[in-house]
């Protein structure tokens, strides 16, 4: 019951989804749509598990006065504020112009945009790291990156050649390599999906 039934559920639902791909008939389409909705609903219920985990971890840090517990208080304050503001006026709580949305625009959005923009620094430091490696492979990577990067910048007499080379690299060897990766990933993913459906790969199920 504890192990066999879940494996059976995986098998039945997996085989059904593979079969429904080939069957256009509406009866299968309906079940497919329900199943997709059920998955979303399960995900929504699981959100509570997430909130529980975050809250419990933060609270226990505060209780134990662990190093940096004050920051856990900040997390809890942020979370509680959003939950309160998001529900206290029913479904009107998250309309544009509410305090809930103000917090979104003035706290959430700028931090998110800044985190994202850190990539500008990291892409440079990663390039430097690759530059220091000095192997054939790292050199191929860097030289190609340079050619592609410079395609938009005027380089005088070699501009035309560089632009031609950049577009050739993007459409020919780059495409070839990507296809090899895509095909490999396709085979790996389909094989893994089969192993899951047939219950061969089941580490994700845990043990008793």
């Amino acid at each position: 019951m504890r192990r066999q039934l879940p494996i059976l559920i995986v098998f039945v639902s997996g085989v059904f989804m593979v079969i429904q791909y080939f069957i256009p008939h509406e009866s299968f389409e309906f079940i497919y749509e329900y199943a997709m909705d059920w998955i979303i609903i399960i995900g929504i219920f699981a959100m509570l598990l997430g909130l529980w985990s975050l809250t419990r971890a933060s609270v226990s840090k505060v209780q134990a006065k662990a190093p940096g517990w004050g920051f856990s208080v900040m997390t809890l304050v942020g979370l509680a504020t959003m939950l309160f503001l998001g529900f206290y006026k029913g479904n009107k709580s998250i309309a544009e112009g509410t305090f809930f949305m103000d917090l979104f625009w003035y706290i959430y959005t700028p931090i998110q945009a800044t985190m994202f923009s850190l990539l500008a620094f990291y892409i440079a430091s990663a390039a430097y790291r690759a530059f220091r490696v000095r192997t054939v492979l790292a050199t191929i990577l860097l030289v190609t990156a340079l050619i592609i990067m410079l395609r938009l910048i005027p380089l005088g007499p070699i501009s035309g050649v560089n632009q031609w080379l950049a577009s050739w690299i993007l459409t020919v060897p780059n495409m070839a390599a990507k296809r090899a990766i895509w095909i490999g990933v396709g085979l790996g993913a389909t094989a893994t999906a089969l192993k899951i459906i047939f219950g061969i790969e089941r580490a994700y199920m845990g043990k008793d």
Partner: peptide
């Protein structure tokens, strides 16, 4: 990762990268 757009960054910034299908293997 099998996310093709991110493999280059992992290759550049980590010590070892499992490329695409290698992750599944």
């Amino acid at each position: 990762t099998d996310e093709i757009a991110q493999i280059p960054f992992f290759v550049a910034a980590t010590d070892f990268t499992l490329i695409g299908e290698e992750l599944y293997a």
